[in-house]
Computed example of a mutant assay.
Amino acid sequence: MYLPDHAWPDLGEYFERESLALVPVGSTEQHGPHLPESTDHVIAENLAREAADRGDYLCTAPVKVGVSTHHMQFHGTMSVDPPAFRDYVESLTRNLTAHGIDRVVYVNAHGGNMQHLREVGRRLREDRDAYAVEWMWDESIPDLVDDLFEHNGPHGGPKETAMLMHLDPENVHEERLEEARDGGRVHLEDGDPTIHGARNYYDAIDNSPNGVFGDQTDATAEKGEQLFEAATDELVALCDWLDDRAFDDLMAKPHVD
């Protein structure tokens, strides 16, 4: 059930029987010369909506702009400051609790959001308002990702390229896949990301001239479909697990006596 598509009287039945919601969270940022800036929020929304339909859960409208300060050197990247992002997502989630939601899955597709979504989840749990957990699609299926691609790339690589070939092929510039590979970094390590134990970068451009990593030419729509189906299965399983838990069991344990 996709919340924005329904009139309010028709949503009451869901809130009477369920207390779980999926919130898609992505970004609007550069993904190299071959992918649209919508990549992350397209992936997040499609996964959240598909899992909601399969599991009979509620999916909210997506959060399309995240924390992307590390991509600001590239045209069009949109970003919000981390405190503003955290406060916005927290406020949005507290709005859901007013309707009876007490467990939330942030269906995330952008690495820059991860730590901030975790912090929001901690705040909500400490207040006993909700149990909100951050879920990152590729981290749910690491073995499949490794099996499908020799050089995954942490950003704009073949896994995201394959997903977009499956979900939004009209906005993938397949004629630029070699350009993406040859103008970026196939291996993150080639950019000397660590010097004497210190991370030697803050922004994507510090390690990749065109902002992406991995071998994009290894991506296909068929591989994207495999990723999408496997990640959706994991997301539905997570929602079912959360749905079965007693609320008190999800809250913080008491102080040790």
Results as ranks from 00 to 15, higher is better:
residue 2 Y to E: 14
residue 7 A to Q: 09
residue 9 P to Q: 13
residue 28 T to I: 00
residue 30 Q to V: 14
residue 31 H to F: 13
residue 38 S to Y: 09
residue 41 H to G: 06
residue 46 N to L: 04
residue 46 N to V: 01
residue 47 L to C: 04
residue 48 A to D: 02
residue 49 R to V: 02
residue 51 A to V: 07
residue 56 D to A: 08
residue 57 Y to R: 14
residue 62 P to H: 15
residue 64 K to E: 15
residue 66 G to K: 15
residue 70 H to T: 03
residue 70 H to G: 04
residue 74 F to I: 01
residue 74 F to M: 02
residue 74 F to H: 10
residue 75 H to N: 13
residue 78 M to I: 11
residue 79 S to D: 06
residue 88 Y to M: 08
residue 88 Y to E: 02
residue 90 E to P: 00
residue 95 N to M: 05
residue 101 I to V: 15
residue 102 D to Q: 08
residue 106 Y to T: 02
residue 107 V to G: 00
residue 107 V to Y: 04
residue 109 A to L: 12
residue 118 R to W: 10
residue 119 E to D: 09
residue 121 G to F: 07
residue 122 R to Y: 14
residue 132 A to G: 00
residue 136 M to G: 02
residue 143 D to Q: 12
residue 143 D to K: 01
residue 144 L to V: 01
residue 151 H to F: 07
residue 152 N to V: 08
residue 152 N to P: 04
residue 153 G to I: 01
residue 160 E to C: 15
residue 169 P to I: 00
residue 172 V to I: 03
residue 176 R to G: 00
residue 182 D to G: 04
residue 184 G to F: 03
residue 195 I to Q: 11
residue 199 R to N: 07
residue 200 N to R: 01
residue 206 D to Q: 08
residue 207 N to G: 09
residue 207 N to Y: 11
residue 211 G to H: 13
residue 216 Q to V: 10
residue 219 A to G: 07
residue 222 E to Y: 00
residue 223 K to D: 09
residue 226 Q to R: 10
residue 227 L to W: 03
residue 233 D to S: 07
residue 234 E to Y: 01
residue 242 L to E: 10
residue 250 L to P: 03
residue 250 L to T: 03
